[in-house]
Design a protein around this nucleic acid. Structure first.
Lengths: 212, 212
DNA sequence: CGCATTTTTGACCGATTGGACAAACGTTAG
DNA sequence: CTAACGTTTGTCCAATCGGTCAAAAATGCG
């Protein structure tokens, strides 16, 4: 039944707490070194416990990873789920971009872990991309297409529009080192996310052609 | 003197050929599994030779990787180097975006290898980012800033503009699996790069706000 | 308290890893 | 032919890996 915990029936308070502790440490290590680059010993040390103790709460390294990434995907897709037909389309897209950028700022580990998995060809989550992500994107693409037909936003490809929002926002988490290095000590500080937010808003709404 | 080959003075024709063969195989394996995920045995098999034979041409796994990524960075930055003040600014940016997208299409292995390294915090190429990439970006950012002052393109942040071009184009190499899965069998075929090119041109030039 | 259950750990194991090394093989110039 | 040099490989090694296991420690419970 339960493939992750050694306990069949019910989950102890300690088990719940320790599992969360381990998952947090595992997120640290996995996001920094990838699945193969991470070792159970590293995760154990980050969690402040012994290796066999980790394997008491998770049956394998793989189990930690899948538990982590399945949970992660949900929070990662939440902003897209909230995209709906209530407000005005431009405002909806603007706040979606803003929320995705905030997630890149506040949850860079999650973004990197996801990026790492996709980079390697998504060997462990391909079924989730097909079964969850694709249907959601198709649904939202249809919504966006409706906005285009109604003349609310410019006509273009909704799928690639979503890709470009993902790419530009997650770039600030996944390529953080490069961004900060290129921006330098002064411009690469905490303010870089506000700069990015301002820039992206202009890019997506106005483009680069001069107004004159 | 030469830290990579076993031969001090000169490089044989066989050495030159075999080193290229190995580097190509190494690019395959490294780009798919990352540095730690790749094994010398995998590279050896991909190159059709034995493991000790590999280590005759490259003193270590690390030597293969650094040789590969240092060379790669040059070709990867070439399109940005070509950005200059000759043509009109809009056309320059448009062709830069097109060339970067073509590179994502034609050299996905290089893109993924680079992305993988940056994701892990660029432990092996940080000096290149500081010493080569940053100065180049600063130089081109100044060029773009001149275009803005001259009213040739809209005023915005040149650094983040460059980031967004990198992010959107490389996304089609690095997140290829996700892109193809989400687009589905029909739209995710070979035509996806033309669709992306059309979309990105509109995004960067016009943005999403309707013209009416 | 005493007993059962849960939690923790030291010791250990087989497999895989990057790499060393010497011997064998191939090639070429004298 | 043969000596010298470049190339290739079988074998081996220490380190590290994910994971097991039995026993000890802690905890909960009557």
């Amino acid at each position: 039944m339960d493939a992750e915990t050694p306990v069949r029936r019910r989950r102890t308070r300690i088990q719940t707490e320790k599992r969360e502790l381990i998952l947090d440490a595992a997120l640290d290590v996995f996001s920094q070194h990838g699945f193969r680059g991470a070792t159970i010993d590293q995760i154990a040390e980050a969690a402040g416990m012994s290796k066999p103790n980790l394997l008491y709460y998770f049956r394998s390294k793989e189990a930690m990873f899948t538990t982590l990434i399945e949970r992660l995907l949900q929070t990662w897709l939440a902003p897209l789920r909230e995209l709906d037909d209530i407000g005005d389309p431009i405002g909806e897209l603007r706040s979606y971009i803003r929320r995705k950028l905030e997630m890149a700022r506040d949850y860079p580990r999650e973004s990197r872990l996801f990026a790492n998995e996709i980079l390697q060809g998504a060997p462990r989550i391909q079924h989730l991309i097909e079964g969850e992500l694709k249907p959601l994107v198709d649904e939202k693409a249809a919504l966006i297409k409706g906005w285009m037909k109604a003349g609310k936003i410019a006509r273009t490809d909704p799928w690639h529009l979503i890709f470009s929002i993902w790419a530009t926002t997650q770039h600030y988490a996944d390529f953080d080192i490069q961004v900060r290095t290129v921006l330098g000590p002064d411009r690469g500080g905490d303010g870089r996310f506000e700069d990015a937010a301002r820039y992206l808003e202009q890019l997506f709404l106005e483009g680069l052609r001069p107004k004159g």
